[in-house]
């Protein structure tokens, strides 16, 4: 099946989160078929690090993030957070991890309860977990609202009275209020205007410094991911293609799919005309019947017989750069995806 393996993982003692061989499947009605949403994905995050996860729609980014939260628990694999195996936890024990492990979603407005005031929304975690007394909770809510740039004087209002960017600030306040160590951000800026997106990205960096956060940052915009991440993981059809530090990944992608993603980014520079020869063709195969061997092989110009029979394993190609490909690109090499439309 593009790639599995754990060569990219670091020492378990050093990592705040370590996920190994994660598998998530969704049954399709009564057909007996399953959607192979996440198929043997491993990742780890060091304390204070930001891991970016990129890949196209349906590749399993959100499912990976949600499986870490046990929403729902994975079919198989392990998720060790802060030394605790989450997949083994049930009921109350699992719930008790929530304040330390938070998630922020793409659509800021619909992820906030429209009937509650902003103060109640942000305070909810403290109330549920019984953190602090009433005065301490109010003070904490004011502090985090202030920190995300929402005037606490307006906290009596409801979400619809705020703009999309302000709602995302409120979501961030809600996530940091219980002082989690890890926050999984699922496309937190994808629905926002560029000017607001810049504000939220800067805010996340500030929050990270201020509260000593570790972040998983899921997005499909590679420039955004590069901006915030210390390490980037590229996914395709439920598999990991490549893991590397952003500057290395962007300078010399080793996986053909990473190269295709980078080549497709529209550059805000009129001197750079889109290069149609480097744009990936074809369609993503069905996750119900993923290709054998390397899952990217049906669209990969480098595919050979071996790619159909043998699933590539993640391996180091440079210091800190790991790729799951039988025939990776060497630094400086480009890839031609053949003639394109027109």
């Amino acid at each position: 099946m593009a790639g599995r393996g754990t060569a990219h993982l670091r020492s378990p003692d050093a990592s705040l989160l370590r996920v190994e061989h994660l598998v998530v499947e969704f049954p399709v009605g009564r057909t007996g078929l399953v959607v192979n949403a996440v198929s043997d994905v491993s990742l780890d995050i060091l304390e204070g690090e930001t891991l970016g996860i990129v890949g196209e729609s349906g590749c399993g980014k959100s499912t990976t993030g949600r499986a870490v939260m046990q929403l729902p628990p994975p079919k198989s694999g392990t998720v060790v957070y802060d030394g605790v195996e989450l997949t083994a936890l049930k009921g109350e024990a699992l719930r008790a991890t929530r304040p330390r492990l938070q998630m922020i979603f793409q659509d800021p407005i619909s992820s906030l309860n429209p009937r509650r005031t902003v103060r109640d929304i942000v305070r909810e975690g403290l109330d549920i977990w019984g953190i602090g007394d009433k005065a301490a909770r109010d003070a904490k809510v004011d502090e985090v609202l202030e920190a995300v740039g929402i005037d606490p004087a307006n906290a009596g209002r409801r979400p619809h009275e705020f703009s999309g960017g302000q709602c995302q600030r409120i979501s961030i306040a809600r996530a940091v209020v219980t002082e989690p160590r890890l926050i999984i951000c699922d496309e937190p800026v994808s629905a926002l205007d560029v000017s607001v997106q810049a504000q939220i990205l800067n805010l996340l960096e500030d929050m990270k410094a201020r509260y000593g956060l570790t972040l998983v940052f899921i997005a499909h915009d590679l420039a955004v991911v590069k901006n915030v991440s210390d390490r980037v993981m590229v996914m395709y059809l439920g598999k990991v293609c490549e893991v590397a530090a952003p500057d290395a990944l962007y300078a010399s992608p080793a996986h053909p799919y990473t190269a295709a993603l980078l080549a497709a980014i529209p550059v805000p520079d009129p001197g750079v005309r889109p290069d149609t020869s480097r744009v990936l063709g074809g369609e993503i195969p069905s996750p119900m019947a993923p290709p054998s061997g390397c899952r990217f092989r049906t669209r990969c110009p480098r595919a050979e017989e071996r790619c159909a029979t043998e699933e590539p394993e993640l391996r180091a190609v440079a210091d800190g750069q790991y790729v799951a490909c039988h025939f990776p690109l060497t630094p400086g090499e480009t890839i031609d995806f053949g003639p394109r439309a027109g």
Partner: peptide
């Protein structure tokens, strides 16, 4: 200037409006 640019190193502070 508020767009994150690929050629900028990661963690570059973005200009905002």
């Amino acid at each position: 200037s508020s767009i994150p640019k690929l050629e900028h190193p990661s963690h570059s502070r973005l200009a905002t409006i």
